[in-house]
């Protein structure tokens, strides 16, 4: 008989080691992300709610059809009316931060994958792992590294939400037709020129679809993030569940749905806007 492999112990030891040795590093990240979120929340909350609702509706009108603008206006007003405005802004800040980090890290990795088959072969299984591992599990090391609050929630969201941005960046670049790549090469483009002038512009719609996916996935993480103390709509849902309050649960859940639809429509259409 082979004895049970002490995998859990190994992971514990490894995480302890990281916590121990890399504490200053994690503190730095924690502080940076924390400041960024605080800054976002500060800006969002300092705008009068009605004005902010109008701004969102205006953006929707500019990017898409008037029906979406109407939905945005009415939906956000409903959230405001139900008194979930501040929680919504917290959630929005959390989602935006997670998405910004996903973009900053994800697009370069996606580009790297698209340029090297070896990189792709190594990264793809990692992405599969990141997406299939239950998101709750990320919370544990996140607490150890970053304490409780907004930051571990964001980190967990990033891990869960980043893969689509990476995947679709890679896919978008690889999907650029071979003859266009040949044309770019035939005129003597360097790798960088080819990337910036041909591959990335043509991959933009696909990359935007990936970012849209990341937005949606990070939004799906808000309830889970509330388990580690991230404020926002997720916390309201969590509270309603633990106290078995159906009405409040429905209200908070509805606010998440509205925010999801608004963000989905907006982020989808940023891509289309760019395409033209």
């Amino acid at each position: 008989m082979i004895p049970k492999i002490p995998l859990a112990d190994w992971v514990d030891t490894f995480v302890d080691f990281l916590t121990d040795k890399l504490e200053p590093f994690f503190d730095l990240i924690s502080e940076g992300i924390g400041n960024f979120v605080d800054f976002l929340v500060f800006i969002l909350t300092s705008i009068p709610p009605i004005l902010l609702i109008l701004i969102f509706a205006g953006i929707a009108l500019w990017l898409t059809r008037w029906t979406n603008a109407l939905f945005t206006g009415v939906g956000l007003w409903l959230i405001y009316n139900l008194d979930y405005w501040e929680a919504t802004l917290d959630t929005l800040a959390l989602v935006l931060t997670a998405v910004v980090i996903s973009i900053i890290i994800g697009i370069p990795i996606g580009i790297w994958m698209s340029q090297s088959d070896r990189a792709r072969n190594i990264i793809l299984p990692v992405l599969d792992f990141m997406q299939t591992m239950p998101a709750f599990v990320y919370l544990i090391p996140a607490i150890l590294f970053f304490g409780i609050g907004m930051v571990p929630g964001i980190i967990a969201s990033v891990i869960f939400a980043m893969p689509p941005t990476i995947r679709l960046t890679n896919l978008g670049i690889r999907q650029v037709p071979e003859d266009l790549i040949e044309a770019a090469n035939a005129f003597g483009s360097s790798t960088k020129q080819r990337l910036l002038k041909v591959q990335l512009p043509l991959a933009t719609p696909t990359i935007m679809a990936g970012i849209n996916q990341s937005v949606m996935l990070s939004l799906s993480m808000v309830v889970i993030s509330s388990l580690v103390g991230a404020p926002g709509l997720g916390a309201d849902v969590y509270r309603a569940v633990s106290q078995v309050k159906v009405g409040i649960g429905f209200e908070a859940g509805l606010a998440i749905v509205i925010l999801a639809i608004v963000l989905d429509r907006l982020s989808q259409n940023i891509g289309k806007q760019k395409q033209n």
């Binding site: 003859d179 266009l180 040949e182 044309a183 090469n185 005129f187 003597g188 043509l202």
Partner: peptide, 16 residues
């Protein structure tokens, strides 16, 4: 050489 001496025209145009 590709930039100065040789240019190519493609079957399926390959325009950007």
């Amino acid at each position: 050489i590709r930039r100065t001496k040789l240019s190519m025209v493609f079957q399926r145009f390959a325009l950007f």
